[in-house]
Simulated assay, not measured.
Amino acid sequence: MNKSHFRKNSPEIIAFGEAMAMLVADETGALECVDHFHRRVAGADTNVAIGLARLGFHVGWLSRVGDDSFGRYLRKTLGDEGLDCQFLHTDPLHSTGLVFKARANHSEDPAVEYYRRNSAASQLCIEDAKGIDFSQLRHLHATGIPPALSSATCELSEYMMAKARNAGASISFDPNLRPSLWKNENVMRETLNTLAVKADWVLPGLSEGRLLTGHERPEAIADFYLDRGARAVIIKLGPQGSYYRGVLNGQLESYTVEGIPVTRVLDTVGAGDGFAVGLISALLEGFTPSEALHRANLIGARAVQVIGDMEGLPNSDQLKDLTQHLI
């Protein structure tokens, strides 16, 4: 990747949040019993950024890492993945976030332990985004994780979404609920719903939508956000696929797109991020919402068949092969 090219050109997509170094257990069992781990990159926002870069988009990554070995590892790895890291700042006073991840049995969610309190990324603030040329931005991807890290990162989320909206860029918002990071559930619900309705595309999971809106059915969850300003709501239904409800060409459309059958689930972490990659990439490429949901289901299904948070995200050639195989 030509990094000098990145310095001269503004990203068409921006994602922001916390990338963490992740140590993944090499064998199953409780983390306290594991002797050997391998190093990877973790972070929902990062996964989406990497996935979009693999599909050929010029993606800028806004974050902070510590002036430490994990921070240098993240900077190199994200750059090697094709991310534009000109907005990845080094914080000399705070360390890079770290997460340990167990090796799961079968399709269960793996246990994870985070060490991110007062991390470098939790110190992100509006000033860190001052160098971004929003006039060149096509799309902003935001999640509910940065608003949970600190008051400064919450202010940054509001700033990024306002600047993108004023510049005419599309905005996607994935709640990515992390209840343990919030003061309480009410604060989480109020903050994330306020941000979600500033987005064009809202991407909750079904359980997330129920918790955030108080409604049970996908139609009611979607209407909660549509009535408050969102253009479309896409609800992840797990193996059952995904549900779309939104206004297209002045008409309200709603439908479910069936999921992709998976015979063996190895790692569920990152499935929602893969879904977001598929949806955003397809919509930006001009596909219909139905086609976009199909791609989102496809990449989400691929993600759960590979061990690792972002290892299953395809490049353009792999996506083409996957799509042709299912036709």
Rank of each mutant, 00 (worst) to 15 (best):
F37D: 14
D67C: 05
L181H: 07
L195D: 06
V202R: 00
V197S: 11
A232P: 02
L83P: 15
N47L: 11
G144N: 05
T96H: 11
A296V: 04
A104C: 10
S242D: 07
V59M: 04
V202G: 02
H94M: 01
L283H: 00
R217T: 13
G168D: 01
F173C: 02
I307W: 05
L313R: 06
S107R: 11
F100D: 13
L98T: 15
R138F: 09
P218C: 14
H5C: 00
P110Q: 09
M310G: 07
A196T: 07
C154W: 13
L55H: 06
L248A: 08
D200F: 01
A148D: 02
G79D: 12
G82V: 10
E190D: 12
E208A: 00
E108A: 05
E158Q: 14
S95L: 11
Y244I: 04
F87R: 01
Q324T: 15
I234F: 12
A148E: 03
H141A: 06
P146S: 12
S290V: 07
L55D: 01
L62D: 15
L226M: 08
I14T: 04
A296P: 06
G168A: 03
R295C: 09
N297P: 03
A15C: 15
G82H: 10
S63Y: 02
A25Q: 01
L293W: 02
N315D: 11
H36Q: 12
I307D: 01
D223K: 04
I171N: 09
L326M: 15
H38W: 12
S254W: 01
L326T: 13
D26C: 04
V277F: 04
F275C: 00
C33T: 11
M22E: 14
G250S: 07
K76N: 14
G82I: 10
S281N: 13
P92A: 15
S119H: 03
E258H: 08
D109V: 05
G286W: 04
A25G: 05
V247D: 04
H106Y: 14
E12H: 09
D223I: 02
V59E: 07
A121H: 03
I307Y: 09
I132H: 05
N184K: 02
A220G: 09
D223G: 04
A148Q: 04
N297M: 01
L74A: 12
D67V: 05
T323S: 13
A21W: 02
F224N: 02
I280T: 00
L55K: 06
L192H: 08
P218Q: 10
G312L: 10
R302W: 08
D267M: 14
A222D: 00
Y225H: 06
L283F: 03
L279E: 08
R217F: 12
G300F: 07
D45L: 12
H5W: 02
K130S: 15
E285T: 09
N193V: 01
E113I: 15
G238P: 08
S242P: 14
D128S: 05
R7D: 05
Q240I: 01
P146D: 08
V24L: 10
G241T: 14
H139T: 03
L23W: 15
F16G: 13
H106E: 13
S180L: 10
F6C: 06
T143S: 13
Y159R: 00
V306E: 14
